[in-house]
Design a protein around this nucleic acid. Sequence first.
DNA 1: GTTAGGG
DNA 2: CCCTAAC
Length: 555
Amino acid sequence: METVVDIVGNEEAKVEDSIAALNKLNPTSQRKIADPVVYQLVRVDGNGRLVPATEDEVMAVEDLLEDDKRENRFVSNSGQTVECNTNCEHDLDELQIKASEGLPLDNVKLDAEMSNVRPNPEAEFEKVNVQPEQSVALLAPTVDHGSVFQHEGSSKSSNELVENETSTSAVGTSSKPDFSMLKGEIHLDNLTVKELQETFKATFGRETSVKDKQWLKRRILMGLTNSCDFSTTTLVIKDNGVVKKGKEDPEVGSSSENRESSPNFHDKEKENHSNASGMESQNYLVVGNYESENTNTEQRATKRVRKPTRRYIEELSEGESRDSCAKLISSVGHHVYSQPSTIMHVTPVQKVGLDGRWLIRRDSLGGSGVQVPYVSRIRRSRPRENFMTLMPVTSSDKLHTERKVELKKEMKNLDSFENSDDDVVTMPAANGRMRRKHHRPWTLSEVVKLVEGVAKYGAGRWSEIKRLAFASYSYRTSVDLKDKWRNLLRASFAQLPAEKGMQMQSSRKHASIPIPAPILLQVRELAEMQAQVPPSFSASKFAGDTGSDRNSVHE
DNA sequence: GTTAGGG
DNA sequence: CCCTAAC
């Protein structure tokens, strides 16, 4: 029986302390939980920060726990057969099912743990801020909503459930759902706290002492509709079924009030939730494409998943669990980079007239989805570093814009840098050893050339590429090219699906221009940037470079 | 002289 | 980027 506290940010130390402390208190409570996750009731403020729960909130939770205790007592006494109720493990089962249905693993795991935890007579916190759907299962395990609100042709088991309920109705006077009192229309907004509590009881079959109207309404709504659509607080109960009433009723107090607090609470849940589990971000990745820019769609906050915050992204990148992170990224990568063939086609074509546009014009390459870019903080602290490798591939979102700005700066710098050289950066020869002789950031044009070169001559023909494509870049040796290419590959999470592996290994490595799409995407990004950079850059550079290969070669 | 890879 | 081993 561990006390369930909660993770606040990544204060792992604290967490560990907590665990240690708990173990001291309950030496026998080690349990089978491999890596105990500890919770503390928190909420997320507008800035996405975690804030310790207020007393009230804690109270609400404790109340809830009391309910659970009561419930458990009842259960054990009555031998109630309602699923999930007689035995906590049923909860586990249910959760496992959920897991197999694709719910974020972490969450499931957490929930599973929670359901494993027996209510502690002593003060105990439980995590309330879970996703609504799961909250229902967690906080009101008494009811199998799907079964209780069965419609006509329900499954056998459902019927059994109901039968059980009726048969045991004599036992529990008040501890089971009683929908008889939920007939007709219910205007949650019009109900008093007490009435809400009644409704709650009718819904979940247990009493609650929570007095928070919002909370009650939410729980009830979730419980009855089995969804987290709070857009309406008016329900119609018909034949054991719940029908949500038209949302649009602009009843002053109701919808507006709902609106106001709804996003709050809900977002809190969401954010906290996602903070707690990295896996959640996968939802973001898939769902949260740039369409979310639409203010309209944002209204349906319940269905739209918010784009992860920058901070979240960073934390994720930095992530403790490199594994899941990597997986996540790469899997996304595959998704996004999934048009290599298209890209490849175009690449090798522009033989001479490389003006950088062939990269720019490509819409198809454009934002095909939002990804959580891998932004390393470490990297960020070194803005001058070759940013190519840092280029997260992303589409139009704030991040994108921000990066654009950054890149623009880069471009300018590089521009002047490149133009003003000849004498390289002969790094301050410092004392004895000069740390990086010529440290030359790769410019867009160079990268483009490289990519092109590889496209034309094949990876590995570095000297050739050097000679033909980098004739005017005396400072780039064939080795440099090779290194750069390698870096590009790495930076692009080179492990493209099977495709690449196949090509690289089976077929001729040099002939088939195996340019990893990610690289092209990166280049494209740069090209986009470049397109918005003062013409001095693009024009001069591209015009000058491409024309002829064997230009002046000052070697 | 080139390439491939490790540092 | 640098250095080297291995072509």
